[in-house]
Design a binder for these strands. Structure first.
Lengths: 206, 206
DNA sequence: TCCGGATGTAAACGGTTGCTGACTTAGGAA
DNA sequence: TTCCTAAGTCAGCAACCGTTTACATCCGGA
């Protein structure tokens, strides 16, 4: 059952040196991201990842210590790429824009890898802590658009609403990718923007 | 890593006959539901389930053919219990009520098992089809509250909104149970009703 | 009372898992 | 050219996976 659909063996980066530790690390990371995001942690085997990356299995343990370590590196990379802080407090429409694009996936990838990875858990405390921190800051960014600011006492209600909005986004990603539920799974970015806009303003205000 | 926290070995039903196929089937189903819901399909082992149920492992294959078969039986039971058709078309407030209670879990269970199971996939086509059908009819029930009725041409937008509402509910369940994200994970039914009500009316109208 | 099917048990099967250690090989520094 | 280290290979381990098989045991109907 394991192998399944290969995650489109990564073969970009022409003119690579034949022996380049940094490059093989990247190859492993890219392949692992896709596998973990698409199939989940425990359904993914290290041999699958190594095959997709075109790399020997043992190198996973060399460069990432363990399967857990590789997963944690994937999650951490999501934190870096998703956590690029936009200068200043974003507005609700800005949040809507970035969310909808993240939600259908960047055109370069065929999956919204970042958000899909956020849905996955390995059960390991290290990776889960990173994941939680990403979500926390993500939600705080959304709450800030509604007037919330850090350390604000008694404003849990606003933070809760932002976290609910985040839940909705992740739920949409999950149902779009892991079920064939129509019209949701076939909906385009434009189809989603309207309902999602209503959802956001209802939770966070105009 | 597998065994983990035991899923509170099921020991209800006093005065059971010592050898009762129907009863052991139920024991296996209850234990499996908790494991699958809490840990996911591939992270759950048949030995875990059998231990929790206090039953020999081989009986899983006897009564459910395979691990897949057991999972499919769990999903099907969700369909039965969740799909109890309320007479007539529900109103949005009624949907809100049933959704919030389902969302925090029935007081008898410590988890919202029904919705958590809906989040899980085994990759098997049989179980996934059942899952999809449950979600479809669930979303159609919600859309009906907003005036949608089956076969309505061009009303995909309304069905899409209902499916987004369902996504939101499932996303909330996922984040509440699989991450320690506060205040969301500690929110009570009352805390959730307000934001969730706004969300529903924004998507489906009053 | 006896028997036969239903129910439960124990052990093992082949395959897969993550991981390791001993090894070869490439490629730059001397 | 030589040599040493980083990078990659290979075979295999021990544990675990889902499943099967052969066997024990119970219990209701004859």
């Amino acid at each position: 059952m394991t192998t399944g659909t290969p995650a489109s063996t990564v073969d970009e980066d022409v003119a690579v040196r034949s022996r380049d530790a940094g490059n093989t690390r990247q190859l492993l990371l890219r392949a692992a991201r896709i596998r973990f995001a698409r199939d989940g942690y425990s359904a993914t085997t290290v041999r699958d990842i190594a095959n997709d990356a075109g790399v020997n299995v043992a190198l996973i343990n060399r460069y990432f210590v363990s399967k857990e370590g590789l997963f944690e590196a994937c999650i951490a990379r999501v934190g870096e790429e998703l956590g690029r802080p936009s200068v200043g407090v974003p507005t609700v429409p800005q949040i809507l824009d970035s969310l909808t694009t993240q939600l259908v996936g960047l055109p370069s990838d065929q999956y919204p890898l970042q958000l899909m990875l956020l849905l996955r858990s390995s059960g390991d405390e290290g990776a889960d802590r990173i994941r939680r921190n990403i979500m926390r800051s993500f939600a705080e960014g959304m709450a800030a658009a509604a007037g919330w600011h850090a350390g604000d006492p008694g404003a849990d209600a606003l933070l809760l609403r932002a976290q609910i909005a985040l839940s909705a986004a992740l739920g949409i990603v999950l149902l779009r990718t892991s079920t064939g539920l129509d019209p949701l799974s076939r909906a385009t970015e434009d189809d989603l923007r309207g309902p999602l806009g209503d959802l956001l303003t209802a939770l966070l205000g105009r």
